[in-house]
Amino acid sequence: MTVILVALGAAIGAPLRYLVDRAVQARHDSTFPWGTFAVNVAGSLVFGVLIGGAAGHAVPGSLVALLGTGLCGALTTYSTFGYETVRLFEDGARRYALINAGASVGAGLGTAFAGVALAHAVWG
């Protein structure tokens, strides 16, 4: 059953990453990969809220599978992030590559912690 929920969530998460990435890029004329940065940070926040809520039994495991493992898991990506970082470096945009690596990990981690804290604050 869980695997079906994961698949369903991913069927939404993966196209959502593509559409959000496009929308963000259309608003920034920059080689910095803001689109991927945005989905990774947003997905980390939501997954943090879900995990924090699950720890307090406020969010059922099925919802974590659907929205966390499935949707957020497919919305966020390490392969795209990794490829972009290496390509920026290879193209000579080394500062962007370093900033992308540092900022993605820093902001993703920060929002995951914030999400868990938020869930604890809301649901105790």
Binding site: A10, G13, A14, R17, Y18, N40, G43, S44, V46, F47, G48, I51, G68, T69, C72, G73, A74, L75, T76, T77, Y78, S79, T80, F81, S104, G108, L109, T111, A112, F113, G115, V116
Partner: peptide
């Protein structure tokens, strides 16, 4: 976008660190 993007994950990574 689909297979590798769905396979890899940044959110699980961030939450697992937490």
């Amino acid at each position: 976008v689909g297979v590798l993007g769905g396979y890899t994950t940044f959110s699980t990574y961030a939450v697992e660190v937490q």
